[in-house]
């Protein structure tokens, strides 16, 4: 696999190659070269099967890390191709012409993370969140619990007690004065 790493580095500036498992590696490219990297992997390197594509919100670094996992069935090896895109302006080249299911992943990432893939079919349509008005829900700064508490009412009568606090109240109420 190291030959592949070298080849990807030479062609697309790929870096940070990691062998996660015997049959799974990962590498990082610049987002601008993502499409070409994947196209080359698919057409020329035998990584023809797209297992999935998704994103991870690395909010601390101000980026979304895209992950495209492609598999070379002949060699029994999968490769996770990562690319960091600017969280403030997340726009990525579409891969819908490379794989027939690519547009669905992109529609999902648009809805869930707010990452845009210009030209991807139906990319602006709702995917699974009908009538959603909140921010993209998979972003780390969307607090689903706070949203839920603000949107829905809890069941009345639910109240719980902390054991240590309860014991202080009952056994040594004078402490903490």
């Amino acid at each position: 696999m190291n030959e592949l790493a070298k080849e990807l580095a030479a062609r697309y500036g790929a870096r940070d190659w990691h062998d996660r498992r015997g049959d799974l590696s990962s590498t990082v490219v610049d987002p601008i070269r993502l499409h070409d990297t994947l196209a080359w992997l698919k057409d020329s390197a035998g990584y023809a099967h797209l297992s999935f594509a998704t994103a991870v919100d690395n909010i601390e670094r101000g980026v979304f890390t895209l992950t495209y996992t492609v598999r070379n069935h002949e060699q029994g090896h999968s490769l996770m191709v990562h690319a960091d895109v600017d969280r403030a302006n997340p726009v990525v080249d579409s891969i819908h012409l490379l794989w027939g299911q690519g547009w669905t992943y992109q529609r999902e990432m648009k809805e869930w993370f707010g990452i845009d893939f210009p030209g991807s079919p139906r990319v602006d349509e709702e995917f699974v969140l009908e009538g959603w008005e909140g921010p993209p829900m998979m972003r780390r700064d969307f607090d689903s619990l706070a949203y839920s508490d603000a949107t829905y009412e809890g069941r009345p009568g639910r109240v719980t007690h902390d054991p240590a606090t309860r014991m202080q109240e009952r056994l040594y109420p004078e402490a903490g004065k």
Binding site: S51, F52, V56, D57, T67, Q101, T104
Partner: peptide, 16 residues
């Protein structure tokens, strides 16, 4: 940090 699930229907039931 993130869990993403890949199910075969993602392509079979939509694009295909």
């Amino acid at each position: 940090r993130r869990v993403a699930v890949r199910g075969p229907s993602y392509t079979h039931a939509v694009s295909v």
